[in-house]
Design a binder for these strands. Structure first.
Lengths: 307, 307
DNA sequence: CCTCGCTCATAAACCCAGCTTATGCCGTCA
DNA sequence: TGACGGCATAAGCTGGGTTTATGAGCGAGG
């Protein structure tokens, strides 16, 4: 959401307008199974509970979503649409859950992971979901920190596998590149750069004021290294989200990690501007204590990170 | 306790492991404002309520997220991570809300939109959020249906602005292209195609078994038109989500709308395979009754769709 | 030095959303 | 026609989240 200056009209929070996760899960189950009762059974509740919950969701949204019949229930057109939107919420919640369970860091974990923030934020939940899909009984614990902290954990044998971003590999660790954090230049679709047919010269990027994170942030450092020390800020903002929404609303070109803008790119709220002559990315590496390449669950996870 | 019918260990649903939306919103507010009390005030609840809610969320997740001090509250490292994951859920909920409010279709709407499913599902929520940001008092109503239904609504003057996908423009309507639904070929990163340096020949695409939606679906039709009538299914699945997860888990190459896989592409769970010699896209058009180009809020929305 | 002002925590009482159990109605199929 | 599956309704219970009221820690300023 945009920075809420002057709220003006007091509107009840999102939570009062959006059904809770349980209701959304139920809706997805009804869509999949074609019956309130079966959906209820799958979720471990009774049929009247499901019936009432769907009904109250319809009342809350003001839309009939389910066509009831004595032979089952099918979604209405509106219901199908709502279900598609709901699926996104539930998917985000699944990623949250996968991450949070690892973060809980139980002592009995069979795999202890230490990861830098970018990786933990964007990539690890997906990997953990995939790992859970293929090895459901693997308990993973996660510790997030900077590269030095990751290295320290590994060397102290408090973690089995680490993930770091950046140019250098900490000493006494073995590493393999598992991906790249590509910075990309993005603008709103209306910006002149969006109509270019040729890549933007690095020189022009360096001399144009950009929407950037504050000095010292990881992406800012990568950008300034690539440009040779200079970057002109048009705006300096303190969160990736803020940079993103400024760019979407057309304030100017921004430089952001590709990981942060997948959704915006595919919906064309932002467009990516190719740039010639600079490598705006940094390697993402899996690391482990020299000579102790992970086995078992760690090896499984490592496999997932490379496809 | 719920009884474990069927699936071995019965695991409580997501809703019991993920904090509800209200708690996540609160967490974001705490992160932004640096104080439980201020966050409480912003959300219109009391400070003890916020305190207790954050505490119970920490208990639920088993992670300390907030460092309390007499001068305010800051997130811990783990808390920052949880907050980033939470933000995705909240963003999806905001899109849901924007769509659902329009779907409610109140009679007093100042702008009545009719849209086809793909557009309503993927693009419209974003447009509506943008519209709300720049014109907060515009009430929009939405009706979703196929192209014929959209045309009918417009011609009956029951809608002010329509959106359709497909090759043809219904008669008696004016239209402007607002985007493209690009189908792309995707595979898991480990697939041989992912290592190609040259675009895939259309011929090879046509002769390779693919993971596809069922016959008759929109994307399947576009693909078969582009390929000249033939497509070999490796798997035929009935939902985009199912196709996507099969592809992610490496079952084979799939053809999907770019709109459906933004997230998977940026996280490299899927990679896009360029194809030579076929146009795998269909135009997305805004349409209106001939000679009645929208004014006012309709014009605003139209502006947003083109950047 | 002491008090004000901000922070957060605790305790008790309240309320309502959502659950269960029990029942009824409707349509389909053998 | 009776059994079955599907949904709706009603009554009663429970718990999580809320409020009000209060207390305690820390810093700033008269």
């Amino acid at each position: 959401m945009s920075e809420g200056v002057g709220e003006g009209l007091r509107v009840a929070g999102l939570a009062h307008r959006v059904p809770d996760l349980g209701a959304l899960e139920l809706l997805l189950a009804v869509a999949r199974l074609g019956s309130l009762g079966r959906a209820a059974r799958e979720l471990g509740i009774t049929q009247p509970a499901a019936s009432s919950r769907i009904r109250s969701m319809e009342r809350q949204l003001g839309v009939a979503m389910v066509d009831r019949s004595p032979r089952g229930s099918r979604l209405t057109d509106a219901g199908a649409l709502v279900t598609d939107w709901a699926r996104r919420i539930v998917e985000a919640a699944e990623a949250f859950d996968a991450g949070a369970q690892a973060l809980r860091g139980r002592r009995d974990s069979r795999l202890r992971v230490a990861a830098s923030m970018t990786i933990a934020e964007y990539l690890l939940p997906g990997w953990l979901m995939a790992l859970r899909a293929q090895r459901p009984d693997t308990a993973v614990s996660l510790l997030a920190g900077n590269s030095a902290a990751v290295a320290q954990r590994l060397l102290a044998d408090e973690a089995d596998l680490g993930f770091v971003e950046g140019l250098t590999v900490p000493t006494d660790l073995d590493a393999v590149v598992v991906g790249h954090d590509r910075l990309i230049v993005v603008t709103a679709p209306g910006h002149p750069w969006a109509r270019r047919r040729t890549p933007l010269p690095a020189q022009e990027l360096a001399t144009t004021p950009l929407i950037l994170r504050e000095e010292g942030s990881g992406t800012r450092q990568v950008l300034e290294t690539a440009l040779g020390g200079l970057a002109r800020p048009l705006l300096e903002l303190s969160s990736t989200t803020a940079v993103k929404s400024s760019a979407v609303s057309g304030a100017g070109p921004a430089v952001l990690s590709e990981l942060a803008v997948g959704e915006e790119l595919s919906a064309r709220r932002l467009v990516s501007i190719p740039v010639a002559g600079v490598r705006l990315d940094r390697a993402l590496r899996a690391v482990w204590r020299r000579g102790h390449r992970p086995t078992g669950p760690g090896r499984d996870l490592l496999g997932l990170t490379r496809g």
